[in-house]
Write a protein that binds this DNA or RNA. Structure first.
Lengths: 194, 194, 194, 194
DNA sequence: AATGAATGAGAGTTCATTCAT
DNA sequence: TATGAATGAACTCTCATTCAT
């Protein structure tokens, strides 16, 4: 953000601009959305955008942060408890797939970010992996899962869920079948059990 | 491709245009590369581009196909042999990481395609997963690896290698350490052994 | 018009753009006139054109409306008085030919519109015919001219003046001779007298 | 035409090009039709067009001539017989409206010509008026119709039929009603009877 | 007579960004 | 803070036309 608003009105304006851009980037994608579109949807003058944000890329950055926060709040990575059985649920996959179903278009913003604001995309996954690996580390110490480099494991699991999310939810929109879910559980269980 | 050249000269021209765009998209990315840039680098009039290709997106499509072909030829997914020990080498990860090291910028084109020509990106991974799962299926039938839905397993493995490739090769450029490689082998072995 | 200006300065700019395009379309025709030509003549950046107008066709629309207004103001179709003698003067032909002599190039814009913005051309003549037929209807009711479908009569008279205008004024630039004017008066008188 | 073919095959090629352009100009209009479109539809190589025709305008010229010929053949202006009753039929209007119904799109080419090849458009109507006025002159000499400048009368009648054709056939596509036809007959009869 | 390849001027249009108020 | 006006670089794409064979 370029200028941090000091008044209530200013904060509301920024809020409106962020909301509008989140919606438009979701619907039409980053490239197809112009600043004018955003300003119009937010109900403010075109030029005001540049009072608060440096550029189109600047706001993309902002959005990635917000999505990151939302997703982490939803996944509750830090309170992971892997005792007893190990499965998708425990590893956070279930929550992630759920989130993805409900935020298909939001995820699209992330993908846009990968191209148009790569640092932000990197930051998104590194932050995620960081929290994730903390949870995994704890589980390792408590003997709940196999002991390996936690960060490596975090990226491994994120990689799996990311690709399965793309394939089964975003591309084909059918979700995983009962059988596939069982198989996935099996694979996770074998990989992770202590 | 819009127009298929009929003479040797035409074929050479197309070759030059494809080569130039592959290089430029790699270096500067899709958005920052203009048709004029491509034409100039290829040494032809920019109008000629549109004689052979419908649009900028059209050639991106073409490039994705070429990259797919190259990568598959390199990975030799169909001749996978998983007997004896299961490890990165056997699963094709080693070759993929190798390819990635040598084609960092090329992989960037794929990422661009995800945004600018999503169908092509989808096609890329579906084709890859298709071949991959055929190899995996064979290995399952021969009792070399665990029996699960081969397609699911293919996407799972692709997901892992994709994300690790991003993290350890493209973003941080350091590759995986000895220790990490061992851990990864361990995880794969546990997940896949029959 | 795409965007209606809100300040005096804005209104002046629009005025300049309209004036410039009216002149250029008149002189060089619609096709041969580029947006840059217009902007240059108007003394503004060419991008500003698209701030106020959606496209080249959009401004053609605007011009047709303006020409329509001008012409109607000049012809005063509603205050037609056909009492006493019926002749060119009474029917509005004289004024039309006069207008045409003085606005040769403007009429060309209309012809361009017939090809490039047909709806606008249609609208032009329908509006004209509408007003005209109201005047004719009144004259019929007062027994000043023959009673027929007023709209049909309006188009008939417009057709005559249009074609004679093309032939005698725009193409050959000589105007009608005394003899021809007499004959035309005769024809009109015979056709229209009660 | 630029080069007049000397062989049978050449004549056929020209025939194909003319046919293709007539169809395309009818459907899409002059501007929206490219030489490539024409060549493709005609089934010949792009470059060959320029062997036979100087330019896009050159072939428009050709088409106008052909349309002129077709229309005149259909209207049979020279064999007009105005004896007995004078009405639309006698004056050639009926045939013209018929032709127009069946050649809506062809007439559109003429309108295109007015903008893109004005000389050809002029020539079209002057030729038509010339033939027409010859027929009218004969009728005048035989005392069948009022005696006025035949050329003026020709343009007058052409003007009427042109505008009514636009309004009732091309724009609104409904044709004239019984009542309107009667009124039109009345007007013509009053104007023309000796 | 015919083909296929190549040219390049130029067009309309978009849009991020800046500026004056 | 906010508005409306203005800028102009840059882009994709079209297409009439020419040329070599």
């Amino acid at each position: 953000m370029y200028y941090v608003p000091k008044t209530e009105k200013g904060r509301e304006t920024v809020e409106k601009i962020i909301k509008a851009s989140m919606e438009l980037f979701s619907e039409k994608g980053f490239t197809a959305t112009s600043i004018s579109d955003i300003a119009e949807k937010a109900g403010v003058a075109h030029g005001l955008f540049y009072f608060y944000f440096k550029s189109k890329y600047d706001i993309l950055d902002e959005l990635v942060k917000i999505i990151n926060k939302n997703m982490r709040r939803y996944l509750k990575l830090n309170t992971m408890n892997l005792s007893n059985r190990i499965d998708m649920e425990k590893v956070g996959f279930t929550k992630f797939f759920e989130w993805l179903e409900n935020n298909r278009n939001i995820y699209r913003i992330l993908i846009d970010a990968q191209v148009h604001k790569p640092e932000a995309y990197m930051w998104f996954y590194e932050t995620l992996a960081d929290r994730y690996s903390q949870g995994l580390k704890k589980a390792m110490l408590e003997g709940q899962i196999v002991k390996v480099n936690p960060e490596l494991l975090a990226y491994t699991l994120i990689g799996i869920s990311h690709m399965l999310g793309l394939r089964y939810i975003l591309w084909h929109r059918e979700g995983l079948t009962e059988k596939e879910l069982n198989d996935l559980n099996l694979l996770l269980e074998r990989m992770l059990r202590p």
